[in-house]
Design a binder for these strands. Structure first.
Length: 886
DNA sequence: CACTCCCGCCAATTA
DNA sequence: TAATTGGCGGGAGTG
């Protein structure tokens, strides 16, 4: 009885939600307002008289029941009509009291009727799947919430997921615009590509998925003992991520990626949760896991409403587990770029703002340990900037998305290939995969995919699009593959490994890659034992993942980058396939690297405004892709198919000769121009002699940072690798030129021969790939970055390279330098060989890895309290960016 | 009891 | 400062 009375009263006292709703609602009387009901509290409170009490009462009055009823009505009736009901509803309320109650009870919507999935369907029903391009449908959150009879909070849940798929985009406060599914396939494609980068390995084989769990935890632990670097204060501290990193939006994209990458197209919730959890440290929280699962359900409900997935159950040893099966499109035809309008919307690159973060790592001599040089600052800006910054008032968020997309695209392009694999390395593979996943943050452009032993890899050149320049410009670059200790350090431990190069190498293997355009280098496990050192691998993986994430995440860029190295564990692959070994042999030589020239050429590279920052780039890319591709030019190129061969050819064409003798600089950035330039660089000189630097063009966003600089700078991600370290890598090749280039024997590259490398065979054999992700962050400009994007798509096909392990070497260049030049700076540290490991790796690992937890259920158990909400570990990782202050 | 996941508190962001 | 967003996790509904 009281309740009723109260209900009546309710109108009088304003409840927080009510006012708004009422006003908005169509003329409903306050009393009636169906909307925003407040929750009911059944039990009367002790102090009815307190203000609070009144509120509660009111709330209770508002009770859910009423809402439900309304909802039902609405649901059942055509949407259009829904509004009408209001009035009646009000009546109902009253009525309800008496007679209706029972009825309600019967019909009571029950939870299902209030489910997010159903709500989403109602929401979707309001808008056409394929709206005419001409019509712009704007969505008012308040309106929708009121019409659907739910609180606004729920609408956010829906919209955020839809936004992640580009079905809607935020235009302004309380305003979203409806795009429909026109771009869905493109978005999915991007996600798929990005997903491959990040998670490809993982999902490669499903069985592994299962394994993953175990491995995840265990392996990591094992592998990484050292790696804990993650925890490094720097990293952690740096991150204060905004919550956005954890956002539903991002989770949604990642979740979708998992499906797209999965062969079976079935993803179990727990696995997804584990993968998506980022963890900072070893400890995993059970609570965190639960929370993740909750979110996944939220996302899954929306995706289900979109008919993209459906619920299924998979039975495993442990029993049946909830899972979801992808029932959406699997193949994404190239789409039409045209379709999307190019809308050059005004957003010139929002990304620019975002600084990229870079990190450096130096490799130390003997071991590959990475330390970070750079300080990482969080790139908060990125996110923060995201909304605020976005220059375009119109749609800040979109930008974000775009960014993501772009990144994704880039990444995808870069690394596209998949590797099938798997023969042998189960454990390793999985780990790697896992690691990689975890590491997503990586800045480095390259994404690595771990390849199991056999796989072949091809190196794929970057997609032309991406690095358009390359074709033209790049004459060649060479990469030296073999690394062995050669020169400088024979003795060093590294050397030892390398010494043979072969043997050791073999195991670890590495990879290489080189896209024609830029350079890439990567390496697999450095250490002699691969096993022992996780570093490389992890790093690689991490990088990849990082990038991917970056791509995914909007803000991302900066943040993530920081973590490049993974220290840990990633175990490199243990075994390498024979093939690898072969390759390894080659490796003896030190790498030389290729590098695009920096300065001179730089213009290209850096240049493009867009290119500058990786982050920016990504973003841009996204836009382009999604929104509009702006970069037509590239697109053309992009179309090109790039095969290694082709690339090679191209490169050849350009000029093999060009390579400067000096090893290092060969610049090739070419391609990048619009893109991010990617480079590889090695410096033999001076103190560094032993070290090589590598830069990837694309660094992960994180890697670069540039924040402030006005410099067009880019951040180049670089990695310094001790020569020794390199040794382990088998080779690097740039696909393109195989033949033309110097005639080097496959493998051999001596350090000396900077110029050329031949890698002919290598490439194929090599297990690893590297992709570059270029990153540049340009904060700057707005520019034109766009181009890259389009190409990217095509690129995707092409590119890809992956490697798995590489990371060891990588470093981030902490600084952003606009040009390669900067790299030099990095060198300084050189004297000591550094290994990256410590530095970021941790993050990487952390990143996907679910804490061992997966492995250990036990561990999960409560830790809740710990974290602060603020920073999610993941974010932290991401964030880490180096700031290069200077 | 396990699985789902609604609900809404309240912090982070924005306006 | 107020409003908007949205992370988060308690705990309720379902089976």
């Amino acid at each position: 009885e009281n309740i009723f009375d109260r209900s009546r009263m309710a109108p009088k006292t304003p409840i927080k939600n009510e006012p708004v709703d009422l006003s908005k609602q169509k003329g409903c009387t306050p009393e009636t307002n169906p909307i925003t009901p407040v929750k009911i509290i059944d039990r009367p409170q002790p102090d009815p008289w307190t203000p609070t009490a009144n509120l509660k009462i009111l709330v209770s009055a508002a009770s859910p029941d009423m809402r439900d009823r309304e909802k039902k009505k609405e649901l059942f009736r055509p949407i259009e009509n829904s509004e009408q009901s209001d009035t009646p509803d009000s009546l109902q309320y009253d009525i309800v009291d008496d007679s209706t109650v029972d009825e309600f009870e019967k019909q009571r919507p029950s939870r299902k009727q209030k489910s997010l999935g159903l709500l989403c369907q109602k929401f979707l029903a309001r808008y056409p799947n394929y709206p005419l391009s001409t019509e712009k449908t704007t969505i008012s959150l308040d309106e929708v919430a009121s019409v659907l009879g739910v609180e606004r909070r729920r609408i956010y849940d829906i919209v955020n997921v839809l936004e992640s798929l580009q079905l809607v985009s935020r235009v302004a406060k309380n305003q979203y615009s409806w795009h429909g599914r026109h771009n869905l396939s493109q978005t999915l494609k991007m996600l798929q590509e990005a997903g491959e980068l990040q998670y490809g390995e993982l999902m490669t084989s499903q069985h592994k998925e299962q394994d993953l769990e175990y491995k995840f935890g265990e392996r990591k632990k094992e592998a990484i003992p050292d790696s804990q670097d993650f925890s490094e204060p720097d990293c952690i501290s740096a991150s204060a991520n905004s919550r956005k990193d954890k956002s539903l939006r991002i989770m949604s994209q990642k979740f979708v990626m998992l499906f797209l990458v999965s062969k079976t197209k079935i993803v179990t919730l727990d696995i997804a949760a584990k993968i998506l959890i980022e963890e900072t440290q070893d400890t995993v929280d059970y609570s965190k896991f639960k929370t993740k699962v909750r979110r996944l359900y939220d996302i899954a409900n929306v995706l289900t409403s979109l008919d993209l997935i459906k619920k299924v159950h998979v039975t495993e040893e442990r029993g049946r587990k909830p899972a979801f099966k992808w029932i959406g499109p699997v193949e994404f035809p190239e789409k039409t770029d045209e379709l999307r309008g190019h809308s050059p919307t005004s957003d010139p690159l929002p990304e620019t703002q975002r600084g990229a973060c870079t990190q450096h790592q130096s490799s130390t001599t003997g071991k590959q340990r990475f330390t970070r040089h750079a300080s990482f600052s969080s790139a908060q800006p990125c996110e923060a900037s995201r909304r605020k910054v976005s220059s375009e008032p119109s749609s800040p968020r979109q930008e974000r998305q775009d960014e993501n997309h772009s990144k994704m695209i880039n990444l995808a392009a870069v690394c596209r290939q998949k590797i099938e694999e798997d023969t042998g390395n189960k454990a390793c593979d999985t780990e790697m995969m896992l690691n990689s996943a975890k590491n997503s943050n990586i800045t480095s452009p390259f994404s690595l995919l771990p390849v199991p032993g056999d796989s072949d890899f091809c190196v794929n050149p970057l997609p032309p699009a991406v690095f358009p320049v390359v074709q033209a410009d790049v004459p060649s670059f060479s990469l030296p593959v073999g690394i062995s200790s050669q020169a400088s350090q024979p003795s060093t431990p590294a050397a030892s490994k390398t010494e043979n190069g072969k043997t050791t190498l073999v195991p670890n293997q590495p990879f290489l890659c080189f896209p024609s355009s830029s350079l890439f280098m990567l390496c697999g496990g450095l250490q002699e034992n691969n096993l022992s050192e996780p570093l490389p691998t992890a790093g690689d993986l991490g990088n990849r993942s990082a990038e991917a994430q970056a791509a995914v995440l909007p803000t991302v860029c900066q943040k993530r980058s920081s973590h490049k190295c993974s220290s840990p564990s990633a175990p490199v692959d243990d075994e390498e396939p024979a093939a690898k070994k072969q390759t390894l042999e080659h490796s003896d030589l030190p790498l030389s690297l290729v590098v695009p020239q920096k300065p001179s050429e730089s213009p290209k590279a850096e240049s493009s405004p867009g290119s500058g920052c990786s982050a920016a780039v990504h973003l841009e890319m996204n836009r382009l892709d999604l929104a509009n591709p702006a970069a037509p030019e590239e697109a053309n190129e992009s179309t090109k198919p790039l095969d290694c061969q082709e690339q090679e050819k191209q490169s050849q064409k350009k000029d093999p000769d060009e390579r400067p003798p000096g090893n290092e600089h060969i610049s090739k950035e070419n391609a990048n121009q619009s893109f991010q330039p990617q480079y590889l660089y090695v410096q033999p000189t001076a103190g560094l002699s032993s070290f090589n630097f590598l830069f990837s063009a694309n660094q992960a966003p994180g890697a670069i940072s540039l924040a402030a600089n006005q410099l067009p700078s880019l951040s180049v991600p670089c990695v310094v690798v001790p020569s020794a370290a390199l040794a382990s890598f088998p080779l690097v090749c740039s696909p393109p030129f195989t033949s033309p280039l110097s005639p080097v024997p496959d493998c051999s590259f001596s350090a000396a021969a900077p110029t050329n490398f031949s890698m002919s065979s290598l490439a194929s054999t090599t297990p690893v790939f590297i992709s570059t992700a270029a990153v540049v962050t340009p904060k700057v400009s707005p520019a034109p970055s766009v181009d890259p994007q389009q190409p990217a798509h095509p690129a995707l096909h092409l590119s890809p390279v992956l490697t798995r392990s590489c990371s060891a070497v990588k470093l981030d260049s902490p600084v952003c330098m606009g040009h390669p030049m900067t790299l030099l700076k990095l060198q300084q540290p050189s004297s000591a060989p550094l290994t990256p490991k410590s530095i970021r790796p941790a993050h990487h690992e952390a990143f996907f890895k679910t804490p061992g937890s997966l492995g250990d259920p036990v561990s999960w158990k409560k830790n809740e309290g710990n974290q602060t909400r603020n920073a999610s570990s993941v974010q932290r990782r991401l964030e880490i960016s180096s700031t290069s202050p200077d």
